[in-house]
C-alpha cells in the first residue's frame, strides 16, 4: 500500500505548532547507527564522556524507523549507496542528512576511484556538510549545531526537496546503480 505510490505532498501545517515542533526536533536528533566509510570511527568518540553528544539530545538509534538523521560518514561506494537509499527512504519524515568529509563533497582523495561516487548531493539531498578528512569530533558537533540552527529556522528542507524532485534523484541513482533492484517508491 505504501510502497507502490508516489510520495504525497506534505500538507500545510499550523505555523505556531510547527515552530514549537521545530524546537523539539532540533533538540532531539536521533541518528541512525549506520557507518558508510572511515568517518564512522570519528562518531564513536561522540558518545564518550569527553565529547558527550547526549547533552544536545543527540542519540543513536539502531533502526532507521526511529531515526531523524542519517550520517554519511565519508566515502560512499556505489554498492553502499544502494543500502543508503534504502535506509534513507525508511526514515520517517522529517529527516536530515549530514555528510562528513571531503569525499562526500567532491570525491576527496578517492576522486578517481572506480566505485566511489564523487558528488553526494546528486543522489541524496544533503542538509549539512562537515569539512575535513576526516572531521574531528569537535567539527562534527559544530556541524550538528549548524543543523540544529537550520531546523530551528525551518531551513532544513532536504527531505521535501527529495520528494518534489524524486525523478531527478532517481535518474541519477539509476545511472550509477546498474543492477537496480529496489522498490521504486519505498516509504
Amino acid at each position: 500500500m505504501y510502497c507502490n505510490q508516489r510520495p504525497e505532498k506534505p500538507g500545510n501545517k499550523i505555523e505556531v505548532f510547527e515552530k514549537i515542533t521545530n524546537m523539539a526536533r532540533a533538540n532531539s536528533l536521533w541518528v541512525t547507527a549506520y557507518g558508510t566509510g572511515c568517518g564512522a570511527i570519528e562518531l564513536r568518540p561522540l558518545h564518550t564522556s569527553r565529547f558527550d553528544m547526549e547533552r544536545f539530545g543527540i542519540a543513536m538509534r539502531p533502526t532507521p524507523r526511529q531515526a531523524d538523521v542519517l550520517i554519511i560518514s565519508g566515502y560512499l561506494a556505489t554498492k553502499t549507496l544502494k543500502r543508503v537509499i534504502r535506509v534513507y527512504e525508511q526514515i520517517q519524515d522529517p529527516k536530515y542528512i549530514v555528510a562528513l568529509g571531503s569525499c562526500t563533497i567532491n570525491g576527496g582523495m578517492y576522486f578517481d576511484s572506480y566505485n566511489t561516487l564523487n558528488v553526494l548531493d546528486k543522489y541524496l539531498p544533503v542538509d549539512v556538510y562537515v569539512m575535513g578528512c576526516m572531521p574531528r569530533p569537535e567539527a562534527i558537533i559544530d556541524g550538528f549545531s549548524l543543523l540544529m540552527r537550520k531546523i530551528k529556522d525551518g531551513r532544513a528542507q532536504g527531505w521535501k526537496h527529495y520528494k518534489e524532485n524524486l525523478d531527478y534523484y532517481r535518474e541519477n541513482q539509476k545511472k550509477i546503480i546498474t543492477d537496480w533492484d529496489l522498490p521504486d517508491y519505498n516509504w
Partner: peptide, 8 residues
C-alpha cells in the same frame, strides 16, 4: 570516474 560519476 569522470564518465560515470561526473565532473567534480
Amino acid at each position: 570516474s569522470m564518465r560515470v560519476f561526473g565532473e567534480r
